[in-house]
Design a protein around this nucleic acid. Structure first.
Lengths: 162, 162
DNA sequence: ATTCTTGCAAAGCCTTTGCAACTGC
DNA sequence: GCAGTTGCAAAGGCTTTGCAAGAAT
């Protein structure tokens, strides 16, 4: 479920190093951070901190929960990841090199479906103008049932009717 | 910050009693639940469980945290309240007798500003049709700074420059 | 009388943090 | 070697829950 990528000049890794170096107090680029950046950008998932920890461990990396949490915060701050706060936990997705989009979330299988809609930006501008509101971000998530989960249900209902 | 109310035939209290009675196992209408329904619908706030508990206590009611949590769940299920899950805690607002709307949330003062936009429903329908997605609800929240908090900042900046 | 609700405190879930050991620069 | 990072385990913030006592029908 990809949208077309946005061309960028730097690799995510280089962009992160640049971010770390440009701090008023320069931060360090460690092995675990490097592993995380590479792992995250080798996939295209929506994930939370614990999923990432487990997945990376299964893939043979040595990562600690605390460092995953700390590094995810930095990656958001660096503009590499975007954080979706919908419900009790935080989900992350690519931001660097990836276009603006919205989400549909299937409440059966949990899948996140991305979509783009050109009218939304106009709505944002208009609403903010009329309310003199200075927007910094927005969250648009449609909850429901995805096509596959919907199909999987219909046969079940039919059987129930017999 | 009200939107025009939607006319309804029953009082929130009656609607809740009806909901409780119509369960396959009828549930009971207790004093604390009655106090909560009346208190909540005598105001027009966005609130979370702990805010409500404190406010009601200050107003002289005897309510326990656990019961507030349990009753809020029932009120959502009964269609009286809507739950906004944005971030770590759950916010509640009137649903019964109140029109569909979206939110702007000020990250400085926390205020929730409600707005309506007629194009959003069309977008929802179109996106769901193209993805064969069965929507049950949606969340549209614009984060940023409200007009008042924005104004309060400008004078401060000017002073900083002296 | 029966069954649901209440209230307390404990547990759960996710995230953050204090601190000693460690490591990048 | 200095200053930032790591990892553990503990603490934090919010919500849910087990259970005995209490209340609604």
């Amino acid at each position: 479920m990809h949208l077309p990528a946005v061309p960028v000049s730097q690799s995510p890794e280089d962009k992160f190093r640049e971010y770390l170096a440009s701090r008023s107090r320069p931060q360090r680029y460690t092995e675990q951070q490097r592993d995380m950046v590479r792992y995250i950008f080798s996939q295209h998932n929506h994930f939370d901190a614990d999923q990432l920890t487990e997945d990376m461990r299964r893939a043979g990396f040595r990562v600690s929960r605390a460092t995953v949490y700390r590094t995810l915060t930095k990656l958001v701050d660096a503009g590499l990841l975007r954080c979706l706060e919908t419900g009790p936990r935080k989900y992350y997705e690519h931001d660097y090199g990836y276009p603006q989009h919205e989400h549909m979330q299937c409440q059966v299988c949990g899948k996140m479906i991305e979509f783009q809609n050109t009218s939304i930006e106009a709505i944002l501008r208009e609403v903010c103008r009329t309310h003199q509101f200075q927007a910094t971000s927005h969250t648009f998530i449609i909850q429901g049932t995805c096509a596959e989960c919907n199909q999987a249900r219909v046969p079940k209902r039919r059987l129930d009717l017999i």
